[in-house]
Structures are given as C-alpha cells and as structure tokens.
Design a protein around this nucleic acid. Structure first.
Lengths: 125, 125
DNA sequence: GTTTGATTACGAATACATTCGTAGATAAGC
DNA sequence: GCTTATCTACGAATGTATTCGTAATCAAAC
C-alpha cells in the first residue's frame, strides 16, 4: 500500500502530468511529454502499462481507450523523495538541504517571506 | 569542467565516504561500505574504477595500492542534485521543496533559528 | 464490406547499473 | 625460493529502465 514510492525518472514525468491534469489517456499524456522531448507513442504506452503493473497508476476503460489515474499521492511521493535525498545526500540533516536549496537558487523576496511565515508558525507550535 | 554531476546511487555512497574521510584506498572505502551492506570487495573496486573513468574520482599509486580522491566538489554536487529535484519534483519551486523538507521532518528549534538567520541575511542583500 | 486510423498488447533491442568470479602481479611470511 | 595474502584488471552475468517495432483489435469513413 504505497509504502515505498520510488518512481524512475521517466515514470516521474508521467506522474507529474497526471498530478497536474488529473486522469488522462495515453494520448493526452503522450502529447504533453512530446512537447518536452522526442518520444514514440508506444514508449509512453509501455511505460504507463509498467506503471500499472507497479501500482503507480490505475486505469479504467473508456470505449477503446483507457483512462489512467495516478494512484500515488503527490505530497506523499514528494515527501518520500525529499526524505531520501536528505538521508543519502545530506547525511540526515534537513537544514543542510534547505540551505542548499535556498542558496543555489534564485528565490523571490515573496517566497522568502512565505518561508519565514512558515517557520514562525512552526516555531510557535 | 564538472558540468553535470549525476552519480548513481552506489557511486554516491562512495563519494560520501571520500568526502567524509578524504582520500582513501579501495580497502578503506570497502570496509566502510561493508558496515552498511553486504558487498564484495571486487564490486567496490569495480565501481571505483568506473568512477575513475567518469572523472568522479582520481587516484594515485601508493605502493601496490591506489589512493582515490573525490574529484567532484561536495557542495557543488549537492547543489546540482537539489536543483534537479526542484525541477523534476517541485515544478521549479525551491520554496515548495523547502516546505516539504521542513514539514515532513523533525527539525529542532535551533535548526529553525539558523534557517531564519540565513533568510534574514539573504533578504538584506 | 473494405480501407484507414487509432488503440492496446507484447516481445525484443538497447542502454546502463550492479555484482562478482577469475586471472595476473606483487609483496610478505615462512 | 615457495606459499599465502592482497591488490588490480577485466570480462561476464544479472537486473532494471527505456525505447520502439509489429501485430491484433476495433470503430469510423468511405
């Protein structure tokens, strides 16, 4: 039951589309993918079939086609991936990851303020 | 140089050891690895030879043995991996990654304060 | 009803990561 | 010197991810 979510790179691209758009056909997903990179239709199809096998998505027939739905929760998956990175890349320190993320990346003042607010709330609790 | 650092999982484990310990022989690295998981000596050796090929490490003869040194900068590698995660998992928003990292993870008050200080400095500049 | 186009299923090719066995070289111990 | 231990080099097996070609199915268009 969604214990360890570890999508591959290609799978993650597809999940992102399903998370963004909601349930979608292979055609829809493929059209999105094709905007970013050269890829054959059957490649997308095969990937989604594999993801079905793994339980990352489910599907439902709709006429001749299938409509696929992400079966993993976006925030949960993100959380696990971040957690994994904290452990494997930052020796367990979330703070180091945060600083690396803020340091290397252009972040707007508004975003920084939001993070500050978030910190305040978190500290008070 | 060092344009795109993308170590595999096994390579990252080895880099972490070299970052921690500084230059080390295969034997030393292997002993560290073996504490965490079952692995054959020649597996470690082969991995380090592959990393040499890729330029992730360099080496120097010391008698019969070789002493390996990490050729990628730790902070740079961390930065690139975080950047990649921001793009592929969080749609380009560093803030979302930060919040996910802080939300899912137990962080001490001292750590939160450090992050706040960091934010302050960053905002003033 | 035949052709055309879009769909799924599936096997196979390719690529890359990981693991380890075997062989050869060299030094240390006896 | 001979044996043993330790090292490197290297090929090969295995596993997993990725890509795509081909065939079968079905509906729509003609």
């Amino acid at each position: 039951m969604q214990a360890n979510i570890k999508p591959t790179e290609a799978e993650l691209e597809i999940l992102n589309i399903l998370w963004e758009q909601g349930p979608a056909t292979v055609r829809t997903v493929h059209n999105e993918l094709a905007q970013k990179k050269e890829v054959g239709y059957t490649t997308t199809l095969k990937l989604m079939q594999i993801m079905l096998d793994k339980g990352l998505v489910s599907r439902e027939a709709s006429g001749k086609m299938h409509v696929y739905t992400a079966e993993v929760n976006k925030e949960r998956a993100q959380g696990q991936m971040v957690q994994r990175m904290i452990e494997t890349v930052f020796g367990g320190s979330a703070m180091q990851l945060v600083m690396q993320a803020l340091g290397n990346h252009k972040t707007t003042k508004a975003e920084l303020d939001m993070i500050r607010d978030y910190l305040d709330k978190k500290t008070k609790k």
